[in-house]
């Protein structure tokens, strides 16, 4: 069992580094999330791993502890209607407004890439959008980014949300795994970004996707992240949150209960 002082340490570390809300009362949750990382790093137990991070302050180990506490669950086309709305309505409207300039989309907590790849497949299949949309994706976790860039998914992963017709169109079998086609993978540019940092250097985006992260954050971090995302949105841009997440402030819900919010303004964007 992880000592209370160590659970408090994990909660404080996650909150300070990534704004994550970790309940020190839920020791079992910490234990189950940390156990695989502890094993990978060669520690006999989650307790030993946390104690080592606490004792010697190794920056890499500390980050792997923080990353372990992020809930990575996602799937292809999660909440399918959101992706349909983006491909059918939001992106075409923005492409018209941008009049020849590419529409810039950023998936800001991309995990293993299922969501941004879902959008990439829809864009690739729509001749009116192909070549009009630039896709960026970031995550806090280096490991998630490596998996996303590899574009290799398990049989279980490709059966969650991915229609069989889309599977056969865009994937090849690679041993026991399924490899996304290079054409789709090359549509996305990747970067490690901590949303607790200043995002101004990345320029402005027409669509920012950050689904189901806010609910994992401490209240003050939620407000700070929404503020940064809003500042990274071009006038007239769209923020896409999880179905039950709220943006607040000057972002207006677009209706339909899809977690889509609009920033007022005309299509004017500053470059990175």
């Amino acid at each position: 069992m992880i000592p209370v002082a160590d659970l408090d340490f994990v909660a404080a570390l996650c909150r300070a580094r990534a704004g994550l809300r970790v309940d020190p009362e839920k020791g079992y949750l910490v234990e189950s999330r940390v156990a695989p990382v502890a094993r990978r790093e060669g520690f006999a137990s989650p307790e030993a791993f946390i104690a080592a991070v606490r004792a010697d302050g190794d920056a890499r180990l500390a980050w792997s502890l923080v990353e372990a506490m992020v809930l990575p669950e996602t799937e292809f086309f999660r909440d399918r209607q959101v992706f349909d709305a983006l491909a059918r309505d939001v992106l075409p409207a923005l492409a018209r407004a941008r009049a020849g300039q590419p529409v810039r989309v950023w998936s800001a907590a991309c995990g293993a890439g299922q969501e941004i790849y879902s959008l990439a497949m829809l864009v690739a299949e729509d001749p009116t959008l192909a070549g009009q949309v630039e896709l960026f994706a970031s995550d806090l976790s280096e490991r998630s980014l490596e998996k996303a860039q590899a574009g290799l998914f398990s049989q279980f992963e490709v059966q969650r949300g991915l229609p069989a017709r889309t599977l056969v169109r865009h994937f090849e079998k690679a041993g026991e795994s399924f490899a996304l086609s290079p054409r789709i993978r090359q549509m996305v540019r990747w970067r490690r970004v901590n949303l607790m940092d200043d995002l101004a250097r990345f320029g402005q985006f027409d669509v920012l996707i950050c689904r189901n992260l806010l609910t994992q954050l401490a209240p003050e971090a939620q407000a700070a992240v929404v503020g940064r995302l809003k500042r990274a949105l071009a006038p007239g841009g769209r923020l896409v949150l999880g179905l039950r997440e709220e943006a607040g402030g000057e972002l207006t819900p677009m209706g339909g209960g899809l977690g889509l919010f609009a920033l007022p303004g005309d299509a004017v964007r500053t470059a990175a």
């Binding site: 049989q155 229609p163 069989a164 017709r165 599977l167 056969v168 994937f171 090849e172 079998k173 399924f178």
Partner: peptide
């Protein structure tokens, strides 16, 4: 789990 076989099933009229 061979993709060519899955494609064959879909082309024969399977929905999923």
């Amino acid at each position: 789990t061979d993709l060519a076989r899955i494609r064959e099933a879909l082309e024969a009229g399977a929905d999923e």
